[in-house]
Design a protein around this nucleic acid. Structure first.
Lengths: 195, 195
DNA sequence: CAGTAATTTGAGCAATCACTCAAATGTGAG
DNA sequence: CTCACATTTGAGTGATTGCTCAAATTACTG
């Protein structure tokens, strides 16, 4: 064997994720990444192939972390509907304002790169669909367990739920009043529990 | 006097607006702008000062056009509630898909530039607030005319309405099924008319 | 038909971009 | 201790970035 890697792949990806989420794809330079990953350009390219590939890996990690968080919430709560409510609530505005990493990174990626980097946008769209599929599965299970009327269309429920999550996270970033976000979340939860 | 300008300012701004809306601020290069405006770099800088100033002017024009369209819809319909409904419907998915200029340019600007170009994001946030103020004024007038129960909080109504518009336009760009967007718009209109 | 002044032109600037690669460095095996 | 080899290093690549400015062009005035 030979020299061992000095970096930790997951740690490096988390650092890349943090910048890409905040600054977006185009505004993030390799200088930024070198500083954040504490790696020289040669190492970055040996490890991740290209800026675009690194972005994709970061976005994939973002998706995995989001899914893991959601599944943990599902595992915690006996009622699926409660987990869905808790997941929504978790996106209500915290104290810390002015954090540019509030809106969903997947949505940000689609909007920023639809024209200039269609590969990235398509990749993000795929993750957006996979996220909704996870929601849909949860709604179906909730129906099977009798928590929600089986009459409802699970696909439509999932689409509406995802729209709510997106709206809430968008409002966190755009709006200036945290109180508004909390009220918004409460209204959404009420709508959910009324099903 | 001396030599007359060969370009039309509004035409040039519309051309700049079209690219900026599609590609965003960072992905749009001056080469792109030169081609779209049919102007050489020197002329662009003489006329618009800088890339950032040109972007701001374009965004301001985008805002003005949006406001004009909304006010025209208000003037067309005798009932304000109908105008608000028509305005929502106008954002439901058209045939032409894959147009990267579906989502609101103001929202796109805030998301893209929150970290790297805070001036632009703040400017866009201000226009976002002004847009909501226009909605709020419409709701208040509707209440004064007895179209809507005066009990409702006009500010909350405007916020919810703006969120609906944003969601609809976002879905147009992210989603792949135009039918979904139309259904979404119908549900929003129903909610509006139930007030 | 000068003379004057505003506008347009486009080659080219320094800075930065994403990226490369030969040399230096570290590490386990023999 | 030496060799083989994976990994790290960082100066440097050509391309592109936003932008400048002296010179050319145009048009109104006297």
């Amino acid at each position: 064997m030979a020299r061992a890697e000095t970096y930790n792949r997951d740690t490096a990806l988390d650092a890349a994720l943090a910048i890409f989420w905040r600054k977006g794809y185009h505004a993030t330079s390799l200088k930024d990444l070198e500083a954040a990953l504490s790696m020289k350009p040669g190492s970055i390219y040996a490890a991740f192939k290209s800026k675009e590939a690194l972005f994709k890996d970061s976005l994939a990690r973002y998706f995995d972390q989001g899914r893991a968080k959601f599944e943990e919430q599902l595992a915690t709560s006996p009622m699926i509907i409660d987990a869905l409510a808790a997941h929504l609530q978790s996106f209500a505005a915290q104290e810390r304002r002015a954090d540019p990493a509030q809106a969903c990174m997947i949505v940000k990626t689609i909007l920023e790169n639809a024209e200039a980097e269609p590969h990235l946008a398509d990749y993000a769209r795929d993750l957006f669909d996979k996220t909704r599929a996870g929601f849909q599965h949860a709604f179906k299970t909730a129906q099977a367990q009798g928590e929600i009327d089986a009459q409802h269309d699970a696909e439509a429920l999932a689409k509406a739920y995802q729209a709510h999550v997106t709206t809430l996270r968008l409002d966190n970033q755009i709006g200036t009043n945290p109180e508004d976000s909390r009220k918004l979340a409460e209204r959404m939860v009420a709508e959910l529990k009324a099903l």
